[in-house]
């Protein structure tokens, strides 16, 4: 028996919007720790890892570890039927091949339940090693989204370089080149407006902008984004989900042939 009650149901709606274009089908894993997902895109170039900790739910009952295969496009269709202020409860019985999403309006005058068919997904779970990164950049998520969108109108790839001067996003295409440099800036009114650069050593890596733009669909989940870079590792683009956990996108770099 599984029953997870999320008062801020809009979080789950936003999570689905953030990942449904990157991943078609995925197993949601439910354990005492929380509600989680790890999935790769169909090209096996990007990986998304989601964690919504059990403590973040108003009610969290998960009698035994359960993996539920869902088509994310179908799940998104169902969650779009929930209001932004609705409380969402996820329910499943042991051995059932369906999951139920229950939506309650804030004043309890409307209760809806949507039952979705589960699917068997033979997915590979990858071990993500703990790593020390050469550079970690925290910046406003809206700024990062703007840069990725702007650069993708010029080129297909972005070179992200971190030096003591700041973080530079560069692209080139048929019509020309573009460079955006963000310097560390901690003298701001609100902490989420700051750009903070922790650099152990300079690093420069190349990535496909198509994936970066896909990751920025998580922007509504968090005011800030944290980008971790090391020369021999995929980039990590992390959006923290307040009080609950995170959504992390890993993207393998492009390397010189």
């Amino acid at each position: 028996m599984l029953e997870l009650r999320l008062v801020q149901g809009s979080l789950l709606k936003k999570v689905l919007e953030a990942i449904k274009d990157l991943v078609n089908d995925a197993n949601f894993d439910c354990s005492a720790t929380g509600f989680s997902l790890q999935a790769m895109d169909s090209s096996h170039v990007a990986l998304v890892a989601l964690l919504l900790r059990s403590e973040g739910f108003e009610h969290y009952r998960c009698d035994r570890n359960l993996s539920m295969g869902m088509n994310l496009n179908n799940m998104s269709k169902m969650l779009k039927c929930a209001g932004n202020d609705d409380i969402i409860t996820i329910k499943a019985d042991d051995g059932s091949d369906t999951v139920t999403f229950m939506f309650e309006s804030p004043n309890q005058d409307k209760i809806a339940d949507f039952e979705m068919k589960l699917m068997d997904i033979d997915s590979e779970h990858l071990g993500i090693p703990e790593a020390e990164y050469q550079a970690i950049v925290r910046m406003p998520s809206s700024e990062f989204a703007r840069i990725c969108k702007d650069l993708s109108s010029i080129g297909d790839t972005v070179v992200i370089s971190v030096t003591k001067e700041g973080v530079k996003f560069s692209t080139r295409g048929d019509i020309g080149t573009a460079n955006v440099v963000c310097r560390q800036n901690t003298t701001v009114d609100k902490p989420e407006e700051a750009t903070v650069i922790e650099m152990q050593e300079p690093v420069s890596l190349t990535f496909a902008l198509r994936y970066m733009n896909s990751f920025t669909k998580a922007t509504p989940l968090s005011g800030t984004v944290t980008i971790s870079l090391s020369s021999d590792l995929p980039i990590v683009v992390e959006y923290k989900i307040a009080e609950m956990g995170y959504i992390r996108f890993y993207l393998a770099p492009k390397i010189e042939d």
């Binding site: 779970h125 990858l126 071990g127 393998a252 390397i255």
Partner: peptide, 14 residues
Amino acid sequence: ACLQRRIFYYFSKD
């Protein structure tokens, strides 16, 4: 020309 690496190159199966 750039070669797109895959995630498998970095992360192993559990």
